[in-house]
Computed example of a mutant assay.
Amino acid sequence: MTDDQPTVPIVCPACETTTRVPLPSVGDAVERHNESVHDGESVAEVDPAVSERLADLVADDMGLLEDG
């Protein structure tokens, strides 16, 4: 792992924590936290603001936001 990898904020409202993890590790980090701390319940997640922004960028890139 290198220092120049983008990181993504992971939030857990139940634990009142936010941590940043390298992009390739996001899925594993969220799953590991939820399994070990919340008995598998989906509590921790990628920061919703980041998820929404990524969804907008993907939709724009795919042309889904163009008027038709």
Results as ranks from 00 to 15, higher is better:
S36C: 05
V30T: 05
R20T: 09
D60H: 04
V26L: 10
D4N: 10
P22Y: 13
E52Q: 13
V21P: 01
D67Q: 15
S36T: 15
A59N: 08
T19M: 14
G63I: 03
M62V: 10
D61S: 14
C12A: 06
V50H: 04
P24I: 00
S36K: 12
V30C: 04
D67M: 15
T18Y: 00
T7K: 04
D61W: 10
R32M: 04
R20I: 01
R20A: 07
A14K: 15
P9Y: 08
E66T: 14
R32H: 11
G40D: 13
V8G: 01
D47K: 04
P9D: 12
S42N: 07
D39H: 13
M1W: 05
G63R: 01
M1T: 09
G27T: 09
E66M: 07
S25E: 13
V21I: 11
L57D: 07
P24Y: 03
V21T: 11
P22R: 09
H33I: 12
D61P: 02
P24C: 02
L54K: 01
E35A: 10
A44Y: 09
A14L: 15
A14Y: 10
E41I: 12
L64K: 03
D56R: 13
D60M: 01
L23R: 06
A14W: 12
M62N: 06
C12M: 05
D67F: 14
L57M: 04
E52G: 06
A59P: 03
T2D: 08
V50I: 13
R20C: 03
L54G: 12
S51N: 03
E35N: 12
V46A: 02
P24H: 02
E35K: 12
G68Q: 11
G68S: 11
V11F: 00
A49F: 02
P22S: 08
A55N: 03
D47E: 15
A29M: 03
V30D: 03
V58I: 09
S25A: 09
G63H: 05
V37F: 10
P22G: 02
T7P: 00
E35G: 00
D67W: 15
L57Q: 05
V50Y: 08
L65R: 14
M62Y: 09
A55Q: 05
